[in-house]
Amino acid sequence: MTRPATARWSLLLFVLPALAIYVMFAVAPLVSSVVMSFFNADRTLGSVFVGFENYIYLFTEPVVSARFWNALVNNIKYFAIHVLVEVPIGLLMAALLTSGALRRSEGVYRTILFIPATLSVVIVGFIWRLIINPLWGVVGFPLLGNQMTALPTISLMGVWQYVGIPMIFLYSALLAVPNDLVEASRLDGASPWRTFWDIKFPLIVPQFGLIVILTFIWTFNGFDLVFALNGSAPGPNYSTDILGTYFYRTFFGSSGQVADLDLGATVATVIFTIMLLVTALYFWLVQRRLRAHTV
């Protein structure tokens, strides 16, 4: 074992470069934005400390708060569709890839199925807009123009793009399942279906949980796809507005709306707090239990 003094010094030397860049260019700017949420910019007085006034405004002003709750609910749906569609399909792909039925083609499938994840949203938005366009595309129904279907449609575009990510996480987890267990189950006469659910899946539950919570973080940080398709006041009737676009519109304004930096910082702090609470709760309640269960 290294001596404590050496350990402390080495720790500092090794961690410092990463920590310095991370703190300087990510943590510090974010903290100063959070601080901003407790101030109000005033044309004559400069910034004035206002305590929780911005937060009170956010949750009591009728239009502002109604749009916030709308965006939060939409974001929950956006997350739910990803979890209910993207993760299961990713799992199915991973299960097929590791089913033992493939030989050389395994690598080819794996690479191809991941390709959409490497595309930028500019392309993804453009492709799908064209494909589902009622005039030139394959779908006659105005999917993006209907309040009921617009959000699920955009979510499914996101699923199309990112399904490779849960696939690859779960795939690599399945690869690590010891072969002798699988073989034993097979010799017992279990079907591949039973083998998967009885032997393999229980072993990858922690990774499955991890990809669910990462999907939560990614969808609650979501912005690009909605913005690329529907701009910063995503319609129809804000039915595709999620927290990311709500924040953007508040912080930077839109062509018809004046920007409000302090309120924007407030919105972002609230979003971050929600994510932190849910993630912490998850790790505290679920992930810990899952690990304890499987170890």
């Binding site: 807009r129 589902i132 366009n133 009622p134 005039l135 105005p142 999917l143 993006l144 123009g145 129809p236």
Partner: peptide
């Protein structure tokens, strides 16, 4: 308006 107009964007209109 054209069929499916609910989902037609500005560039689609010009194109049409």
């Amino acid at each position: 308006l054209p069929p499916g107009q609910e989902a037609l964007a500005y560039p689609d209109m010009t194109q049409l």
